[in-house]
Amino acid sequence: MKPILNIAGLNAFIAGQQVIEDVSFSVPATGITALLGRNGVGKTSTIKAIIGLIGRTGTVELDGQRIEKEETHRIIRRGVGYVPEDREVFSKLTVAENLKLAERDAHPRRQLVEELFPDLVKRSGQLAGTLSGGQQQMVSLARALLNENKVLLIDEPTKGLAPKIVQEVADTLAQAAATVPILLVEQNLQVVRQLADGAVVLSGGRVAHTADSAADFLADEDLTRRLLGVHDDGAGAAAPAAGSGAGEPAPEVAR
């Protein structure tokens, strides 16, 4: 089967500084592909470069079409759902407005979103900035799931969330993955183990490793220690990646 996303020789720049170099990989048309690596290796930059939020060169093919010269809003309209790191909900807009803004199809899938996130229906009149981190993440995911997409790009959806919420997010992602392929940046290796099919590992702005099976990669102690700085033994209580989002305090209380 043809990959949904094919990236070749991608370079990206922030303020004139090159942040990723000659990155090439592809995302299969089904399942979840994990994009892994230590902090600061260019995972977020890769995602942003794919949709043109930062300057880039190289080629990006979405469903066989070259998109690397297009503007961000056009790429998104071709069928890309983007869930950014740190959620980036519009804090001064209500939940309902946040969702309304994200609707780009003629028939947005409001019902699906309402079923997935009943909590958001209750809070539709509330300002998104007053939601808890987990609720904001739901808004951010809902914005992407409202539309029919060819691929979802999801950047650290469990960052800074309490363990119970992490599991909720993971379940939602698993549900979504049944219908749409996902490129997922994730620091929580348990979540990766649970969800991901393939894996791409970055190191120093380059692709250091690609694996058809994320589980196989995570089982390789030598590789994971070298590329991620940790080894997840799969026994559940994995050591959090040093300095990764999992170690940060979880602001779970609604302000």
Binding site: I51, L53, E71, T72, H73, I76, R77, Y82, P84, E88, F90, S91, K92, L93, E97, L101, A102, R104, R143, N147
Partner: peptide, 17 residues
């Protein structure tokens, strides 16, 4: 209003800001 807060996220929702 959304653009005043975070312009790049508006474009990342597929809107020509």
């Amino acid at each position: 209003r959304a653009g005043v807060e975070n312009r790049s996220m508006v474009t990342a929702l597929g809107i020509d800001v």
